[in-house]
Design a protein around this nucleic acid. Sequence first.
DNA 1: ATAAAGCCTGGAGTTTACTCTAAGTCAAGA
DNA 2: TCTTGACTTAGAGTAAACTCCAGGCTTTAT
Lengths: 126, 126
Amino acid sequence: MTIKEVSEKYNITQDTLRYYERVGMIPTVTRTSGGIRDYQPKDLSWVELALCMRSAGLPVESMIEYVRLFQQGDSTFAARLQLLQDQREVLLEQRKQIDETLDRLNYKIARYQVAVETGKLTWKEE
Amino acid sequence: MTIKEVSEKYNITQDTLRYYERVGMIPTVTRTSGGIRDYQPKDLSWVELALCMRSAGLPVESMIEYVRLFQQGDSTFAARLQLLQDQREVLLEQRKQIDETLDRLNYKIARYQVAVETGKLTWKEE
DNA sequence: ATAAAGCCTGGAGTTTACTCTAAGTCAAGA
DNA sequence: TCTTGACTTAGAGTAAACTCCAGGCTTTAT
């Protein structure tokens, strides 16, 4: 699969795909004899994992570290487990923040709906 | 309340408080006759709102726009409501992404826990 | 065979959200 | 009054994550 096809499949730019590879967020992608990227299923699964992590807001650096550990082989199982658990904690905390903000937004939205209908505020400022 | 006290209360730097004010993410803070910031309850509630939005990852720019609308007065109720609803959509989507990533992380964590115990992988790569 | 399109690398540029610095002002204690 | 420490602004600097560009290969279609 060419980089163009992959970029269209996942709706990201080719530059981003090259960037992910360059910084080590995914391992080196399979190449043709001419040096052109030819994404194999294994390469795609790394791209998918990287996109999944990034879409949740996890830092590129964590993914780089995970790939680094992966490439060091089976002796890094425990370290990889720890890294994944740490990232899970980050996400749980992030989700908590989002839920708190959603509560606040919902409250304000409800008040503004009344304000829009009646033309006046039912609370003091902000 | 001095900027030092506010920064300690919310655990952010004084620089960040000044930055939020400078870019218009919160309205101008009350000053003493000498020009020094003296946060009033109303100023604090703006700081709180700003921090709440930022902690959920919402962009500074959205908050700036909200403050801008707020300062234009009662004619902007509908626009403010729309803005808040848009931000809610962003957060709901973000939470969805986080939940998907959490599912993936939990799956990998479970497998690595087995791998750490047995010393070998129970799946193919990545 | 050659032009055009697509891909390559290395490196520079951009955006967002701070963070730091410099040079100066204000305020409380000796 | 003077000094010391906190505060002020304007502007420069930084980190993260892309994004763009130049100059040069590779492949495909004519």
